[in-house]
Simulated assay, not measured.
Amino acid sequence: MLRKIMKIILPLFLGGLAVLIICYFYSRYEFENIKVKEIELASEDIPESFDGMRIMYVADFQFDARNSFNKKALNNAINVMNNTDKDVILLGGDYTNWEGKVVPFFEEFKKVKKPEYGIYSVTGNHDYSNHLLVLEKLRETGIKNLDNKKAEIKKGNQKIIIAGVEDLWFGEPDAKAVLKNTDKKDFVIFLSHNPDYFEEIGNNEKEKMDITLSGHIHAGQATFFGLFSPFTGSVTRYGEKYRYGMKNFDNHKIYITSGLGGSAFGQYLRFFAQPEVVIVKLKKI
């Protein structure tokens, strides 16, 4: 009887183990393969001189675990960024997981080639373990931080606005104050690390924003073949609503990137949540 049971159980066990091993190595492979995703953003608010501008958006680097720093993966991401055509770079926060990795991260990040119109950033929840240090390193690296601030990118007498807020969990995000003197006819890109903050933004402010760019959720990090993730509940109150991709709620756009890094139990893995560098290409209509 025992032999018969073992003949049934053993193949099932070995088959399941083989599937787990395959999934593990695929997850390692996916983590190391960054896609470049291009999105066209069409709007009548885009000034003529900004038609065709390429805006790079990246978030959630987090190439570190408690006892490791994945320098190779970070440099792979930097190479993808450097070899992708863009006019400006926007950073969505969460540069490291652990405070002790902040300095080595920014030492490597100095290798990023600054495009013509510079680099702008907000900070994420993980950056608050030593927020002052992160802000100092951003400044030293020549990156303009936009936590509850806005900046203008100008071409002649025309401009677009990049605005951002502090992290929802550990900061005091204030879209109303940031956009107070902004006109609805202005073209505004809004940065919020955590997409849940989109729920708290008033309609008057949303009318001023042409698109919100967020991250934080890593597209679920490890999903059930891209359909859903059992892990989103730990980082968002809204389940699958803001897990990944372009969303349009009452004609208000928000794009949630899958980000670049992240780790689980000290392992650098992604499963059907491929890391990405996003290019938002502006189109005047």
Rank of each mutant, 00 (worst) to 15 (best):
10 L>N: 05
19 V>S: 03
21 I>V: 15
21 I>F: 14
27 S>Q: 05
27 S>R: 02
30 E>R: 09
44 E>Y: 13
45 D>E: 13
49 S>Y: 02
50 F>H: 06
51 D>K: 02
53 M>S: 10
53 M>W: 08
60 D>K: 01
66 R>Y: 14
68 S>R: 10
73 A>G: 03
76 N>W: 00
79 N>H: 13
83 N>L: 08
87 D>V: 04
91 L>G: 02
92 G>K: 11
92 G>Y: 11
96 T>M: 06
100 G>K: 15
100 G>V: 04
103 V>Y: 10
106 F>H: 10
108 E>W: 00
123 T>Y: 03
123 T>Q: 01
126 H>C: 03
130 N>S: 15
132 L>Y: 09
134 V>D: 02
134 V>S: 09
137 K>P: 00
137 K>R: 15
137 K>W: 02
147 D>M: 03
149 K>G: 00
150 K>Y: 12
151 A>K: 07
162 I>V: 13
163 A>C: 12
173 P>K: 07
176 K>A: 11
179 L>A: 08
182 T>A: 09
187 F>Q: 09
187 F>H: 03
188 V>T: 14
189 I>R: 03
191 L>F: 01
199 E>Q: 15
204 N>K: 14
208 K>M: 08
212 T>C: 04
213 L>Y: 01
213 L>F: 01
214 S>E: 05
214 S>R: 10
220 G>L: 10
228 F>A: 12
228 F>D: 07
229 S>L: 08
231 F>M: 15
235 V>N: 09
237 R>K: 15
239 G>M: 04
245 G>W: 11
247 K>I: 06
248 N>W: 04
248 N>M: 10
248 N>K: 15
249 F>Q: 04
252 H>V: 01
255 Y>D: 01
258 S>I: 00
262 G>I: 02
264 A>P: 00
265 F>P: 01
267 Q>C: 07
267 Q>R: 12
268 Y>N: 06
269 L>I: 14
271 F>M: 13
276 E>H: 07
279 I>E: 12
279 I>F: 12
280 V>D: 05
284 K>T: 12
284 K>P: 01
